[in-house]
């Protein structure tokens, strides 16, 4: 399956958002997620099924004014 992860095309076998995060090195990280511009709470990542072409955003704390 091909999808967009933070604007970059990735090929993945992960079927859920939680699995994708583990595969891509986000395990245990303090991040927030959205799929196709919709917020996906941490508790829902395990049951959030991914589909071909999904746009996944993984955001973390960053400097801000």
């Amino acid at each position: 399956m091909k999808l967009q992860l933070n604007g970059t095309a990735v090929e993945t076998k992960a079927s859920t958002l939680a699995a994708l995060l583990d595969d891509e090195g986000f395990g245990g990280a303090k991040v927030a997620t959205a799929v196709n511009s919709e917020f996906v709470p941490e508790g829902m990542r395990g049951c959030h099924t991914l589909y071909d072409g999904d746009r996944v955003e993984v955001l973390a704390p960053m400097q801000g004014g």
Binding site: L21, G25, A32, V58, L59, A60, P61, Q63, G64
Partner: peptide, 19 residues
């Protein structure tokens, strides 16, 4: 302190150090 959210990289995980 004001902060923001930005795209995180699974490789360098810069946001975690900032947090």
């Amino acid at each position: 302190a004001t902060v923001s959210l930005r795209r995180e990289s699974g490789q360098n995980r810069a946001g975690q150090d900032f947090w």
